[in-house]
Amino acid sequence: MAKAIYEGLKFRYKTTVIHRLDPRVKMLLSIVLFALALLGFNFYQEIITFVLVAVPATLAKSLKRLMRVVALSITFGVFVVAINLLAGGTVVESIVLAVRFLEIVASTSLFFVTTSPDELEYVLRWFRMPRDFVFAFATSIRFVPVLLMDLTQIIDAQKSRGLELDRGGPIKRIRNLVPVLIPLIVNSLVRSGELAEAMESRGYGAVKKPTSMDVLRLKINDWAALSLIIPGGALLIWLYIYVI
């Protein structure tokens, strides 16, 4: 499950109109869509929000992947419907609520599937986050696939020694995790030690304000996108709140 979500959200390098936008513009777009998803309370609003998320996702050739992420969250959606029904909501209300939840997921995912972790790092720097924090954040994302690989290999190794993870009662099952978690932790510690050595060897912390290879600069297509997103977003939010 975790692996499926990770696969869904993992960035893949593409060169579409959306991918080429400045990451800050993509972030703004995602925030506006997120706000619209949050504000949507009726059927029409849900439809409009859906279209507004689907269009950039299609332009980014990532609609399918986005839908897969959404499909994975459907369980939660069903859960939302159930709770709402139990709490005395009508069927339509409950469905709208669930759709709203899914749209929130979709609008945030849009940012992650179109923005490389690299760009994300630039955005964090642009927000003047402390260098150590940005670096820790970046490496933690960078090492997700590496740790997943470790995890798979550890599970395979222990299964080959007769470990059956999904066997026994709840307590036994938790105990079953020990042979997997200990090697995983030990390996991660070894890795982080080597990582620290490598950072040191590459001059980490040499100057107070490290520079970066690329500087975020808004290009003409970014301005064009902004001129659509800002007034359009403001108008829609106003419409959502006061009109429809």
């Binding site: 470790d150 290999q153 020694r161 470990l163 042979p179 090697p183 070894v190």
Partner: peptide, 30 residues
């Protein structure tokens, strides 16, 4: 997998992916 592993014993490349016990003998007993 467990039934097959009892017949085909696999030793993986990375020892650190397997060892977790408090003692060597516990490791073998696992």
């Amino acid at each position: 997998v467990a039934e097959l592993s009892k017949q085909i014993g696999l030793v993986f490349q990375n020892s650190d992916h397997q060892l977790f016990s408090e003692s060597v003998k516990e490791e073998v007993a696992f």
